[in-house]
């Protein structure tokens, strides 16, 4: 199923390590619901992969569960041991040992062409004039820590030998919220068998990796406030176009309001109050 491949491939974007600290959001008064889930994929208004595994707490007690990435998210995705917990205005999810599946079986022609280009760059690493290498992406909106020369050579050797079977691996992905504070940590990620994983550090909340890409958006540390005041931190979100399809990996929500009585018809809830603005230092030439 292609549904499976997107769910699996989503995780491959996490090719580095990042520590992301959330900005304050809103939380609502008790009783509140806290929750966490591992992966969810929606497309065409339908849940292709419902949030799973998942856990929630509605009375402040700590609820925990574990599991693996659901088979619907396979077969490209394997491993992925999950630990989830939700408690008193806090929730966390940890994913370890994620592996993105067989590269040869899944590589589309467009990707193969890019891989060939990358291999060519590696083959000419010692003598290729820098000017001949294309600047494909322009400046990335995140800080990318450069690998050392030794790491790069190791990566290139693996790439040229074809000595890799996985698109990406991730040792640990952790997402947590406590009240209106959230953290996202991605550790030990590598791609294409690279020995030189990219490090992404000090990434701001709601960071988009490809802000002008017409086809998809990739957002790290997406933060949002739900209609019931819940504060949600999504570790990684991949969306197609204007939202026709969206995949979320590792999500936590804290402080979500609970309807008072089960069975009552839920009244429309007004979105929470917008925040007072934080002044920005900059230039604002106006008519005076």
């Amino acid at each position: 199923m292609r549904h499976d491949s997107i769910a699996a491939t989503v995780v491959a974007v996490m090719v580095g390590s990042a520590l992301l600290v959330a900005t304050p959001g809103a939380s609502s008064a008790a009783p509140t619901r806290s929750s966490a889930y591992g992966i969810a994929v929606n497309a065409g208004g339908q849940e292709v992969v419902p949030p799973s595994p998942s856990v929630e707490s509605t009375d402040g007690s700590t609820q925990s569960t574990g599991g693996e990435i659901p088979p619907e998210a396979g077969p490209l995705l394997s491993g992925g041991v999950l630990e989830l917990s939700a408690g008193d205005d806090e929730a966390r999810v940890s994913v370890t040992n994620l592996t993105i599946g067989n590269l040869a079986a899944s590589l589309p022609p467009e990707l193969r062409e890019q891989l060939d280009q990358l291999q060519a760059a590696c083959a000419g690493l010692e003598q290729a004039p820098v000017e001949e290498l294309p600047d494909i992406l322009g400046e990335l909106p995140v800080v990318v820590e450069q690998p050392t020369e030794e790491e790069l050579i190791e990566f290139c050797n693996g790439l040229l030998d074809g000595d890799f079977a996985n698109l990406a691996t991730i040792d640990t992905l952790q997402v947590a919220c406590t009240g209106d504070i959230g953290t996202v940590t991605v550790l030990g990620a590598s791609a294409l068998g690279s020995g030189a994983p990219l490090d992404l550090e000090n990434v701001e909340p709601n960071t988009e990796l490809f802000p002008d890409n017409p086809l998809l958006s990739v957002t790290l540390n997406r933060q949002s406030n739900g209609p019931r005041g819940g504060f949600t931190v999504d570790g990684l979100v991949v969306s197609l176009g204007e939202g026709e399809a969206e995949a979320v990996v590792a999500s936590t929500t804290c402080g979500e309001g609970i309807p008072q009585a089960a069975g009552d018809s839920e009244e429309p809830t007004e979105p929470p109050i917008a925040p007072a603005p934080t002044p920005q230092v900059g230039s604002a030439p106006v008519t005076g």
Partner: peptide, 28 residues
């Protein structure tokens, strides 16, 4: 050398992005 590293790093990120794009299009 650092320039080459940067380009390869970017290309690597692009590879992953393209995989996502292709898979997502097929999904939709």
């Amino acid at each position: 050398m650092s320039r080459i590293m940067t380009l390869i790093s970017k290309t690597l990120v692009l590879l992953v992005a393209m995989a996502l794009a292709v898979a997502t299009v097929l999904l939709v």
